[in-house]
Amino acid sequence: MSVSNLLENWAQFRHFHPIDDKPHDPYKWAMSIDLDACTGCNACSVACYAENNLPVVGKEKYQHGHGMHWMRIERYWDEGLGVAGGSDFPDHGAQFLPMMCQQCEAAPCETVCPAAATNHTADGLNSQIYNRCVGSRYCSANCPFKVRYFNWYDYPTTDNVWPAEMNQQLNPDVTVRSKGVMEKCTFCVQRLHAAKGTAKNEGRLVHDGDVQTACQQVCPTGAITFGNLVDHESKVHKQWQSQQVELDKDAQVKDQKEGGSGLRGYRIFEELRPYPSVMYLERVRESAI
């Protein structure tokens, strides 16, 4: 691929919204996360470690930024609240935000991969092909959400990970990644495939509720909803619709109302036009009331 080819055919490389030439039919996997329900308990993160064979890298490597948590809980503090009120137990206004790959429709990571190791699938996922990856880490550099994680080591064989006999705990439906490849949340694609297989045997499409992601399954407060956005009966579609969040918009119509729409749905970095597939429901903050 030469630079001249890139420039001449720019329109074919980069679409404003890829949905135009590859309509999602019959699946578009999407998620919505209710931040008001999220307690920051980290159960989703732990479930992800178990489901997707993520290495626990240990304190030292974690401090070097080598953590491999596909699903991480970001913490934000409402500083304004501070130690106001003179209470012995001041409210710092902790807020939690589960952050994982947003499975962007126009993913910034895809366009920069020199080896085409990350692609868009027909059902709207951003796929990562480990054995095609050459480890340039360009995708991670271009990811606005910083949700791609690089394997700096062959984790199962290095210290601090797991003893050899614990290989039995690995999920056989997910590869164990090796040193030098990039990885990220897959929306539990192995579960999606299993559900699609079952549905195909029964001659139907995947119904809402047939498939859960690992993080959704363990969430004690049910903050995470996952499903098929194309299916109008699905809970996730209904949530997106009720919050008036649309997939192929970089600024939602509801947000242009003066004084705000009063709806809680939003997507992170929408204005950068990656068209993320995850909608967050804003927390109802004490300071905002």
Partner: peptide
């Protein structure tokens, strides 16, 4: 004249 779009579903 290969474009960087890739196959439609590697997964």
């Amino acid at each position: 004249n290969i474009k960087a779009q890739g196959p439609n579903d590697c997964w």
